[in-house]
Simulated scan of single mutants.
Amino acid sequence: MTNSEKDKTVLVTGGSGFIAVHCILKLLKEGYSVKTTLRSLNRQDEVKQMLKVGGISTFENLSFIQADLSSDKNWNEAVKGCEFVLHVASPTPAIQFTHEDELINPAKDGVVRVLKASRDANVKRVVLTSAFGAVGMGHKNRKTPYTEEDWTNIDSNIHAYQKSKTIAEQTAWEFIKNEGGNLELSAVNPVGVMGPLLGTDYSHSHQMIKQMLEGDIKACPKISSCYIDVRDVADLHLLAMTDPKANGERFLATTGNVLSMLDVAKILKNKLGNEADKVPTKELPNWVLKASALKKPSLKMLVTLLGQYMQASGEKAKKTLNWSPRSNEEAILATAESLLKLGLIKK
């Protein structure tokens, strides 16, 4: 990076989130000034503590601003003076909802809010954190790996959360095409995000590892996924932010290797010794998960993933941006080891 780039300011939205805090960590280590939004400024110390765990000792290049994706307030101030925006925040999905629009509208409105403010402040490029959920859901009889050319079929029987991620990203590309002016956009679409926690804010994928280690999952649902380390997701955000070839492109963040939940359990069993005593060794019949989901709404999204083809290719990011991710095994073990180290596993 040139010295002139080190003077640039980057806004990271939703700075307390798992991916966001790793992006902030990477940016600060590379010499950027960082602004980050929080829904409540009460979480500033929490973010700083996570960054300390990640190796940051000084915070003169970091500032906080209160902003919420559901309100226009402070977004113009947040993007002011920024060369780039990493739009990582997304509205917290409601597990209990009466209509899918409760998830879709906040996601869609939030992305437009950030893009409008960025355009008006002459930001050079926004990198949107989208998801594999916007790429590979609702396709039947799929036999070839998903790529960035694919979009989730929102007319099929998919969970509203996946639909909200898809519509939010499509809304972003429409905005750039019709109203974006000189604003550039790239999107990063991570698969299941693993890797080291810096604090207590963890992703869906971490929840699975936590439940396995605690013995809450007695048998593994027959669900497969590709995985990626959060440090590699952060790396890809920075490459998508600065590389001219990334403008107008979306990039799947994946190693390209698919694992079943039982494969994940085996990695933990093989590498963690006694710490993995409670990790399951069998698969769960599909009917058991479906019956459980009738009583427990939080399992409904899992049911939609049963038997789904989930292979996704990371070749575009590797070839276009020279991105080189860690292995699935390294990412999964880093997750487990950080959960243990931070004392987040109930014994």
Rank of each mutant, 00 (worst) to 15 (best):
T37W: 06
E5S: 12
L252E: 02
S33T: 13
S63D: 12
A89Q: 03
K318N: 01
L25H: 12
I104D: 04
S203L: 11
K52S: 14
P221W: 06
E5A: 11
A246W: 07
K295E: 01
S324K: 14
V53H: 12
P196N: 04
N274E: 15
K346V: 10
N157V: 09
N141D: 15
H22C: 02
G314A: 05
G110W: 08
A20R: 10
Q162A: 15
M137N: 13
Y202S: 08
L51Q: 09
K271A: 11
Y227P: 00
E249L: 05
A94D: 09
R231M: 06
S224L: 00
I176K: 04
N178T: 15
D150A: 05
T37M: 09
E275F: 13
H22F: 01
V233S: 08
S324H: 14
T304F: 09
H22D: 09
T335F: 06
L289F: 08
A160Y: 02
T144V: 14
Q66T: 10
G181T: 05
L238T: 07
R39S: 03
M208C: 04
K124Y: 11
F175R: 05
K6P: 02
V21H: 10
Q66C: 07
I56T: 11
Y32P: 00
G314D: 05
A94T: 09
N178I: 01
I154P: 02
T254P: 03
K210N: 05
K143F: 02
K222N: 14
N76Y: 02
Q44D: 03
N247W: 00
L128H: 06
Q44W: 01
L305K: 03
A317M: 07
G215N: 09
E60K: 12
V127G: 08
K222T: 13
L259Y: 14
R125L: 06
E60R: 05
H204M: 05
A78E: 01
L299H: 05
K29E: 10
D235E: 15
N189I: 06
L51H: 10
K271W: 00
L198P: 01
R119T: 06
T281M: 07
S224K: 11
S225I: 02
V258C: 13
K266E: 10
K347Y: 03
D120F: 02
S260Y: 06
N157C: 03
D68Q: 03
G31S: 09
W287D: 11
K140C: 00
I167Y: 02
I217N: 08
A121N: 02
I65Y: 09
E283H: 00
E5L: 13
G273N: 12
P196Y: 04
S118C: 10
K300I: 00
N153D: 15
N286T: 06
I95Y: 12
G273R: 09
K29I: 00
Y146N: 04
P106D: 07
S338D: 05
D109A: 13
K296Q: 14
A276Q: 04
H139M: 09
A187Q: 02
